[in-house]
Nucleic acid binder design. Structure first.
Lengths: 211, 211, 211, 211
DNA sequence: CATGAATGAGGTTTCATTCAT
DNA sequence: GATGAATGAAACCTCATTCAT
């Protein structure tokens, strides 16, 4: 069964030696605090107290407030990426692949709204740009390859770079998640995946392709 | 000719009585500092020095760091909204209207990349949610009405709420702007408007409509 | 009839040209604010508002917060001095003179507790030392002469400088006033004058004098 | 030998955990700054610099400018009280007890003129009234009891409350100290104790007592 | 190693005082 | 001359980060 919860994945970076139980408590605290308050309002001492450790310990393991957040976000996104890879297995059809790609993301953020809030809402994008691993997002690269193949095969619109197709996808994920939160998280997010994906698909498919 | 530069629009809030020249310098400083650094790194004292005024004066007029930023962003967005209204005049065709809507935004942010950086990149979305005027964005409401009419007329996809169409539009604007900056602001942003809009259009148009 | 109320005396310094009615309101405000709060907590803007004038006007007339206070305290003390001179007239006996001297002060501060609070309680002594007129207190000089005559005549203790006798007198006035306020201003201050003065008298009279 | 210098007594309040050496430097700085300038002119940052610590540390330990001053004044006065208790031991005669009481104070303030300046000159009395420990001055209470016993025994004037006798004493101490400073701290203050005390004694002794 | 104390930066607030109208 | 805006200083407060034990 695929990994869903962040704590199922081992910590990255220097956190290797943090006691697993402590690591779990710290993760919960990070998720809670950073998802509830803007990055600059989030207080490391509060996080430390919630995790039952001293804030100095956090510093020794993660170096800085950003380091702490980046480490956990990487864990979380790795979890998402692994699940994505797992889900994409055995799907041959490009459209179905992309549909799945879209659905897995919405489903993940619906199950982990705190993670979504952190990535899309409480932390400014420029902060992510300071994270080296941000640019190396494996998921994106896998996705890009798929899209390029689709363009080469004439299925997808090839008038634009594949990156643009990614942008459309991601813009949709981000905006959809944000508005879902903004409007109160009422309906299911994943349940909207199909109708949204169909629109997305029409956006990126090759308009000249013979139907 | 339409208003393009932020300073062309009168200040909002309590800034009414700030000397126009000082207001212009302050605007330049706010634009500079907030677009270069994350919100929490932006330093009010630096802004005051750049604007050649005392930082107490800023506080008396704007009340807080957020107040300062919100005030100018409101000015800027009002400028964008006015320009938008100006440009949309006389366009009857729905598709052309939406195309214009998309283009004006990309063009605006290309000309005012600092404003775009502030709105989309350096300030977390949750901070904007604290701004009362954020939700009252007139531009969005105008846009929503147009989209609803399009749905009613069977031109646009009516399986989703009009809000979703807005989300797709805005997600595209935001993501496109961000990636444009991220990739170095090389090509013209507005120049991509048409090809991107065509994709957008296919995403939102009514798929069952007889062609 | 002797001058009792501060406003009966004309303003000093540069305040000559302040409208008499404004001057009266300003005096009331100064008395109120400086007697209720420590010097550094007293707020010039509050005073100005209470007096119905702009704080800038105060600055033009009095130059500074200290200048404002000094000016009125001088007016008030001049009133006390004049009344003192008035009362001492026609008293030949040294002891009766000193008794009167003591009584007039207690009586004055009982009637003008705000003035007493300002002089003895809310303003640090060092602040008074910055007031040129402080050292030139005419009342003290008149008093000193009287005491010196008493020493020369063998009536008062001449083992100490006359200044010391003044200190004992003033220390008693100040401490008595302060404790009267501290204990709630219950009994009459002037009513205690006689019993206190008798003690004072025994302190300063020449112990070797044949009874 | 009795404790004389302020730093010989342990710190009060939250300062328990301040490094002793730092505490000593801070005490010196507080003594210096607050004795030279009026309370409202005293600058915490200057004090911090002089003490070689960060001004945040001062705030964490003392909470406010007043808290800082109150803490040290309490230390100092505790030192005086202890020395007083030490000196009064073994004195049976009331007059000698009071003489000692007077002398110890003058001697203390002569050795610690900065403390005297702070208590009597640079800080307004009303500020002390905000200090809870001000009213609980143990020294005063010890003294009061002694005076009451003297009144009961018919040695001291019992026409006035014992509190009045304290007032006379304290008024004399305060005024004597102030004028000593005002006149340039030339002669020894303690050396004047005896002649002043004899005057004081005549003021408070029972005038009807058979000699 | 883990911890709490100290630090420095900077947001916020209040005011006496000065500037410009 | 009278006024309000602007200034600069400093108290106050919080926090990320570093230091020392």
């Amino acid at each position: 069964m695929p990994r869903l919860l962040p704590s199922d994945t081992p910590p990255s970076r220097s956190a290797e030696f943090l006691d697993p139980e402590v690591h779990r408590r710290l993760e919960a605290a990070v998720l809670d605090v950073f998802s509830q308050s803007d990055f600059h309002r989030a207080n490391i001492r509060t996080i430390a107290k919630m995790a039952g450790i001293s804030f100095t310990t956090i510093y020794r393991h993660y170096g800085s407030k950003e380091g702490l957040l980046f480490s956990f976000v990487n864990d979380w996104l790795r979890g998402l990426t692994e699940r994505m890879a797992d889900h994409l297995q055995g799907i041959e059809d490009l459209k179905e692949k992309l549909r799945k790609f879209f659905w897995v993301q919405l489903d993940y953020y619906e199950r982990n709204p705190g993670v979504g809030r952190i990535i899309f809402m409480t932390v400014p994008i420029t902060t992510w740009m300071g994270d080296k691993t941000f640019a190396q997002d494996k998921m994106i690269h896998l996705f890009l390859d798929t899209l390029r193949q689709g363009q080469a095969a004439g299925v997808l619109n090839s008038r634009v770079r594949a990156g643009v197709l990614v942008d459309i996808f991601n813009g949709m994920v981000q905006r959809t998640f944000f508005m879902w939160v903004y409007r109160g998280q009422n309906e299911s997010l994943a349940a909207q995946a199909n109708v949204l994906f169909e629109m997305l698909w029409r956006a990126i498919e090759n308009p000249e392709r013979p139907a």
